[in-house]
């Protein structure tokens, strides 16, 4: 077996994943490109398991399993975020995500607390009586 073949495959897949993450605007496609990168790493881990003599046997395969689990968790949370984004803005284009929060109407209870806090801040923040020399 020539290990260089799967290694080069993994390297090319990783490059494709990077390209996809940077190229795609759709958040779901970005997640797919991330999956490509993760799989490239998995391939390297599994190939290394056969070619490199390790202290513990099959550590590479165990790691590959862990990465798969991580990928599953990642895709779950990532898709929840994407869906929430779509619900709020009716779009999943990553370069249209606003960086500053738009002022939203604050519920009454929260507003009251905020007013109390600001009032306390004003009285507490005023310096003591002006000291004359």
């Amino acid at each position: 077996m020539r290990p260089v073949v799967p290694y080069v495959t993994a390297a090319l897949l990783f490059g494709l994943g990077v390209f996809g993450v940077l190229r795609r605007r759709n958040a779901v496609l970005v997640l797919m490109a991330v999956e490509l990168m993760l799989n490239a790493v998995n391939l390297i881990l599994v190939t290394a398991d056969t070619t490199v003599r390790a202290q513990l046997p099959h550590a590479g395969q165990v790691f590959a399993l862990f990465v798969i689990v991580l990928a599953a968790a990642e895709i779950g949370v990532g898709l929840a975020i994407v869906l929430q984004l779509y619900r709020l803005r009716a779009s999943v284009a990553v370069d249209e995500v606003p960086l500053t929060e738009a002022p939203t109407p604050v519920p009454a209870g929260v507003a009251g607390v905020a007013a109390d806090r600001s009032a306390a801040g004003t009285t507490g923040g005023v310096d003591g009586p002006e000291v004359r020399g």
Binding site: Y7, V8, A11, F14, G15, V18, F19, V21
Partner: peptide, 18 residues
């Protein structure tokens, strides 16, 4: 830019591994 970075990382890794 995506092609540059992606190609760079993919080909670079490939060269290293080869």
């Amino acid at each position: 830019p995506a092609a540059l970075i992606g190609g760079g990382s993919g080909l670079g890794l490939a060269v290293l591994l080869v």
